[in-house]
Simulated assay, not measured.
Amino acid sequence: MQPSDARIVRGAALPTAGVGVGAVLIGLLTAGAKGALAAALAAVVVIAFFSISALAVSWAAKVSSQTMMLAALASYLVKILAVMVLVTTMDGVSIWNTTVFGWTVVGLALTWIAAEFRVALQKGRPYIDEPGNVLDRSP
């Protein structure tokens, strides 16, 4: 994994974990121990899925930009399908609160995406060195 990719994953995983801790506390307050367990499981699922996706895209970037795009789209599809299967199969489970699980997955996925976007914007700020003898051609 490239250092810049590791920085993006770290920059997205840490805020997501922090929001996950908050989600566990909210789950505990709203649905008791079952809510806290659901939020904790959702945090683990989101962080694991998005980290694996970032690793796959980072690996594919070494091959080619077309492979990177294919890996990004494939990992997105796999994440969506895996979460859908997980939520569907766990619908009748009484060990945790499935509503808290679902909302926590959505909230943490949005947190990850926003944090990743923020880190990527900070990383890629282009700059231009203009020579001092360039004529001003403004109207």
Results as ranks from 00 to 15, higher is better:
residue 2 Q to I: 03
residue 3 P to Q: 11
residue 3 P to H: 06
residue 5 D to Q: 10
residue 7 R to M: 10
residue 8 I to D: 00
residue 8 I to V: 14
residue 9 V to M: 13
residue 9 V to A: 15
residue 9 V to H: 00
residue 10 R to S: 09
residue 11 G to P: 05
residue 12 A to F: 04
residue 13 A to Y: 01
residue 14 L to F: 04
residue 15 P to I: 01
residue 17 A to K: 00
residue 20 G to P: 04
residue 20 G to T: 05
residue 22 G to M: 06
residue 25 L to I: 10
residue 25 L to F: 05
residue 26 I to W: 04
residue 28 L to V: 03
residue 28 L to Y: 11
residue 29 L to G: 12
residue 29 L to S: 04
residue 31 A to R: 11
residue 34 K to E: 11
residue 37 L to A: 13
residue 37 L to V: 13
residue 38 A to Y: 00
residue 38 A to M: 03
residue 38 A to T: 07
residue 39 A to W: 00
residue 39 A to R: 01
residue 40 A to N: 09
residue 40 A to P: 07
residue 41 L to I: 15
residue 41 L to P: 01
residue 41 L to Y: 00
residue 42 A to M: 10
residue 44 V to D: 02
residue 46 V to S: 00
residue 48 A to R: 13
residue 48 A to V: 14
residue 49 F to V: 11
residue 49 F to L: 11
residue 50 F to C: 01
residue 51 S to W: 08
residue 52 I to M: 14
residue 55 L to D: 03
residue 58 S to Q: 06
residue 59 W to I: 11
residue 60 A to C: 09
residue 61 A to N: 04
residue 65 S to L: 09
residue 67 T to R: 15
residue 69 M to C: 06
residue 69 M to D: 04
residue 69 M to Q: 08
residue 71 A to S: 10
residue 72 A to Y: 09
residue 72 A to P: 07
residue 72 A to W: 11
residue 74 A to F: 05
residue 74 A to C: 05
residue 76 Y to A: 14
residue 76 Y to N: 12
residue 79 K to I: 10
residue 79 K to H: 06
residue 79 K to D: 05
residue 79 K to L: 06
residue 80 I to T: 13
residue 81 L to A: 15
residue 83 V to D: 01
residue 83 V to A: 13
residue 84 M to T: 10
residue 85 V to A: 12
residue 86 L to H: 00
residue 88 T to R: 08
residue 88 T to E: 07
residue 89 T to G: 05
residue 90 M to D: 07
residue 91 D to F: 06
residue 91 D to E: 10
residue 92 G to W: 00
residue 95 I to D: 09
residue 95 I to G: 05
residue 96 W to N: 02
residue 96 W to R: 02
residue 96 W to H: 06
residue 97 N to R: 02
residue 100 V to E: 03
residue 101 F to H: 01
residue 101 F to V: 01
residue 103 W to Q: 02
residue 105 V to N: 04
residue 105 V to F: 06
residue 108 L to A: 06
residue 109 A to I: 09
residue 112 W to G: 00
residue 114 A to K: 02
residue 114 A to M: 10
residue 117 F to W: 07
residue 118 R to G: 04
residue 119 V to K: 13
residue 119 V to D: 04
residue 120 A to G: 09
residue 120 A to Q: 12
residue 124 G to D: 15
residue 128 I to K: 14
residue 129 D to G: 10
residue 130 E to Q: 13
residue 130 E to T: 15
residue 130 E to K: 15
residue 132 G to F: 07
residue 133 N to F: 11
residue 134 V to T: 15
residue 135 L to I: 15
residue 137 R to A: 13
